[in-house]
Design a protein around this nucleic acid. Structure first.
Lengths: 300, 300
DNA sequence: ATTTTGTTTTTTATCTACAATAAACATTTT
DNA sequence: AAAATGTTTATTGTAGATAAAAAACAAAAT
């Protein structure tokens, strides 16, 4: 019915409200907008509501926080998610569910109805999602789920290895005063910290893993590599929520490999970098293959 | 105004009509549909119109061609292009025009109006097109043209080289009785034929070039490599229409490199394959860089 | 029994409309 | 004069509607 949900406003409102402290004065509208990463129009809408709710007193440049907002002042989390995120979550759950067999048809209208959204948004999502190689479309006809098959995992791993070897070599060539080395040292220390408390913290590894590989890939300064890594990150993000077997052991091993890999990068020795990178990629490939759903073999 | 143009029907109608021969009998509806690559519904619509126009006599299974269709019977070519193709052509012309500077904003509504189409189709096209790395979008805001810059060409060339070296190595490992070798021999002969008549035929090279590289890439059986090559093919297709300088000389040189490359593949010697592949990719990179518009340097 | 034709239903492709958001323009304040 | 606020305009994001095209179902013919 409504053309568009004001989720940008609600999400930014929540974000801004929780950071408010009583009796402080707020900065100018353009500054607030920049802080929140929204337009000034949205920033003004936030100020308007804060004022209406009696959270701030607002008169031109004077913006005083009267009281701390409570949980009750915030918008519920269901209303702050962007439609794209809602569709993504919903769709990933469906295709990772047990009854989602490769070869299955995907129906735009049915999907839209189940998610409670229009078909246009679902269509656009599927078009964007198609670059991850998990779905495919025949023109004028339906989408087909290709699924998390062994073929998919192998093809993904092959490209990932080509790209990461390239990026790692580039990283090794970064000038010594570059920011990359500072970031790498910080990530190295985080690995050590996590290892020291591995029994408690092994679940946090996937976030660290993503940050580490992203740092490497940024060195390549290649948009195609960066895009591909985005795809990998999303696929892994959802996939590993479904496959948590032997996570502690697997993650501990990966941390050790990362540390070897980092040491090789810091040595600047290209041969050592390649060896350490290959070693890690080899075991990452095994992990990926082991995490596949059992039955998933292409049924085209 | 109209929800959807019947371009599938019109295009298939033309395709089928020109192939008709007087006094022949036509096959069953499912067979016609399969021949044309459309649904039976569309095939029936074609038969219906052919019948109405007096081109065939149609009664159940009996379908006799009464007369050869004339040009006058066919739909004009403007009505047979799919909307996607129209938008693609129109958009590529715009971004390859001289006044399309990198950093330029792309306006969906303006584009749609100029092409004479709805915004939804333009949006979907832009989303699909974005994976080629030439445009980029900030959420809730406009698309930006990144353009055929030197950076773009270098990033494209890097990935292309990684993929092609991989695919070429895989091709070299194909079993000797595989179809790939037959196709390769055929393409080799076509290269020789073109070389013998290079002054007349150098303009046909780009089609041969695309077929050759596609054949190599198919050996990798990797959806990400295949998708990337699709992107390259489209970019090159339009790009080289705008940059035809020294085409004869450039193409003749490329043919020689291809022949060396093919010989290396046929030898099955992995080291030779890599050498020949690298040599060709190196000069392809130079060609790409030389063909860039002169001014195009990123203006972010 | 399988294939073909006839008919109906489902699904996609595309248009239009409109609220949310961004961006531009105008006025005021420092 | 530069920056902030106030106001208006342009553009995007999404829903809903509908014709084209595909797909499913039903009846007839080989």
């Amino acid at each position: 019915m409504v053309a568009r949900q004001n989720t940008v406003f609600k999400e930014a409102y929540n974000r801004y409200a929780v950071a408010l402290r009583t009796d402080t004065a707020l900065p100018s509208e353009p500054e607030i907008a920049a802080q929140l990463g929204v337009s000034r129009s949205t920033a003004r809408a936030i100020l308007t509501r804060l004022s209406e709710e009696g959270i701030i007193r607002w008169n031109k440049r004077q913006k005083i926080v009267l009281r701390q907002p409570t949980d009750h002042d915030l918008f519920p989390s269901e209303e702050t998610d962007s439609l794209h995120d809602i569709i993504e979550r919903s769709f990933m759950q469906r295709i990772l569910a047990d009854d989602a067999a490769p070869g299955m048809q995907i129906n735009e209208l049915e999907l839209a109805r189940e998610i409670g959204t229009g078909t246009t948004s679902v269509r656009e999502f599927l078009i964007r999602f198609s670059r991850f190689g998990l779905i495919e479309k025949r023109p004028n006809s339906h989408w087909t789920l290709k699924g998390f098959t062994r073929e998919f995992a192998l093809e993904l791993a092959d490209v990932r290895e080509m790209f990461e070897l390239h990026s790692a070599a580039e990283f090794g060539r970064l000038p010594r005063d570059s920011q990359g080395w500072v970031d790498l040292a910080a990530i190295r220390d985080e690995h050590h910290a996590m290892l020291a408390d591995i029994n408690q913290r092994f679940k946090d590894f996937s976030v660290l893993d993503e940050r580490f590989h992203l740092l490497i890939h940024r060195a390549s300064k290649n948009r195609f590599i960066a895009d591909f890594y985005d795809a990998i990150a999303i696929v892994f993000h959802y996939h590993y929520q479904w496959n948590k077997t032997a996570a502690r052991q697997r993650n501990e091993r990966a941390i050790h490999e990362h540390l070897d890999y980092i040491a090789a990068l810091e040595s600047g020795d290209q041969a050592a970098i390649e060896t350490a990178c290959r070693a890690h990629l080899h075991s990452a490939r095994q992990t990926l293959l082991q995490s596949l759903p059992q039955i998933a073999t292409e049924t085209t």
